[in-house]
Design a protein around this nucleic acid. Sequence first.
DNA 1: TAAAAAGCGGTCATGAATGTCTTTTTTTGT
DNA 2: ACAAAAAAAGACATTCATGACCGCTTTTTA
Lengths: 199, 199
Amino acid sequence: MQALKSAQTRARLIDATIRVLVRSGYSRTTTPQVASEAGLSRGAMLHHFDNGVSLIKATIMHLHERRLRAFRRAAERSAQDQGAMVRTYWKQIQKPAFIAFHELAVAARTNSDLATVLMPLQVEFRQRYNQLAVQLYPEWQAEPGTFALAMAVSQATMEGMAVNLLTGAMDASLVEPVLQSLENQLHALRPALPGDQCA
Amino acid sequence: MQALKSAQTRARLIDATIRVLVRSGYSRTTTPQVASEAGLSRGAMLHHFDNGVSLIKATIMHLHERRLRAFRRAAERSAQDQGAMVRTYWKQIQKPAFIAFHELAVAARTNSDLATVLMPLQVEFRQRYNQLAVQLYPEWQAEPGTFALAMAVSQATMEGMAVNLLTGAMDASLVEPVLQSLENQLHALRPALPGDQCA
DNA sequence: TAAAAAGCGGTCATGAATGTCTTTTTTTGT
DNA sequence: ACAAAAAAAGACATTCATGACCGCTTTTTA
């Protein structure tokens, strides 16, 4: 029973970390902030995570798991409705989890402690991403290069758009047209079928 | 003469700030770091900028000016070589200035001091961006909506790809194919000319 | 039931960044 | 050459995040 309670408290701390990351950004995310947000004393918090970096690392791994699960759900849903992949991923990207993950990814660029945790997860995500998608869309299997391209274009466009929205670099009214355009592009990239040369 | 020296010192401090932002990230960019990087004492630095936020604000404005100049050059070059816009912007995006600007843009999301400076500049950039591009590519003027879409797609895709490269979310071998695909997409978006329905 | 372990709260000293202030040095103008 | 102004350097107190340590309470276990 004490193991369960411990796990619950750890989860509470990680959730609090995500909220603080979204609200205050990485640079203002401090251990007192997280402890307060979780409704715990700082002393209790340091009992579950030896130091602040340890908490951030755990948060990174937690967000990674969530991202994998979210992508799996998105893939399953879009297996039924062929064109739903773009919309489903776009919905995922707008949740707080993505904002927090982006904050950590940016921080990891200049923090080797975080980078050693985050970089392998990024590689793993790409692998699973492609692996699952290929088995869901067998018509792509003949052209793995084109498939990887389609995935990269989707990821770069949607995540770039999400970041640009957050930083005011893009007008919100353009979101829908860009998504539509991306869907058209993905359609054009699909392996040629009989009578499909012209849009 | 003292005004010139003062301006030079200010420029040195701003350049130092950019280097520190690239090397250490926003969260570890401190006034002692910047002063040391600029080869000045902290006291001297605070003589030119009242406080740390003031220095960051000046850096934001400086990067904004550079971004406008860079875009202007890119536009002029791509006016001669029609398809060079993508490549030229991609080159710009990989420079340290973009990394520093991105760090500041992410920080501005949760820092109202920076946001009040950055947000209006983002709006101004979008306006000038479209303004200049429209006059360079007159064939788009009939379809301003499609043109804004093309710009948004380009910006989101390339900046998203740049960020994903920095954070390890994308494999570097996919850069070239994505750029190629983006060029194709832009070509497809161009106003229909006689005998241009099919790729 | 006693002992051990874990959850939790609180206190402490340390280190570092910040902004203000004062002092020294250099430059400028008369 | 000298006095005023500006640049540069340094000193200072304050604030705050951090990690370590100690004590209390509850739960598990022997």
